[in-house]
Design a protein around this nucleic acid. Sequence first.
DNA 1: TATATTTGCAACCATACAGTTGCATTTAAA
DNA 2: TTTAAATGCAACTGTATGGTTGCAAATATA
Lengths: 106, 106
Amino acid sequence: MRRDIFQAIADPTRRAILSLVALQAMTPNAVAEHFNSSRQAVSKHIRILCECQLLEQRQQGREIYYYFNPKKMKEVDKWLDQFRRLWESRYNQLDIVLRQIKKQSS
Amino acid sequence: MRRDIFQAIADPTRRAILSLVALQAMTPNAVAEHFNSSRQAVSKHIRILCECQLLEQRQQGREIYYYFNPKKMKEVDKWLDQFRRLWESRYNQLDIVLRQIKKQSS
DNA sequence: TATATTTGCAACCATACAGTTGCATTTAAA
DNA sequence: TTTAAATGCAACTGTATGGTTGCAAATATA
């Protein structure tokens, strides 16, 4: 069972859950109300998000509130760093190639 | 068949391929030499990366060079925007809660 | 022209994944 | 204390995924 942030955010439902909980901490039932799938399906997604620490929980009586953990999400941002200079520069490798192709065909 | 950037970068081999090709455009054979799995397995990964436009190809004789497309990767960065303010602020929701818990237990 | 190289596609396989239903546990409310 | 609510866990199911091997097509080389 792979369980890392990249695998976690691959699923569109999980991404939606993250967006939701990032706005406000919520119980699983409250989260599930926003989706068409069953409570258990949502609960499974939440569990996966907890396992990779994108969510953290806090019990409050019989309710459990789930909180978004932005520090974990920052790891994705960190991974993107290696590509950042490429999309920030106006002239990246691909641009140069596409320009060459255009030149050749014209 | 889902085919989006998030699903594409979920696989560790595909992330490695992206890091590799981002440094220098390469043929599938050249990419495959960096991995233990078969050429076809790597080729399949490359195909998936092409389908979501993270890679683009250019035929050169019987060889095909694959190029990294940084603009597409930027979409992940864009998605992260909604969370950025949360990890940049020193006092996010989770921090506040954890602080409360500490206070209660001490 | 015959042969080797580079590549993509199809078929197949074991496993992972997302979903469902059912059940057990804990806590709050009647 | 009985009942309802909130939640997690287990079992099952269909499909997606990542891997393999084999084969065909296109291009370069002998």
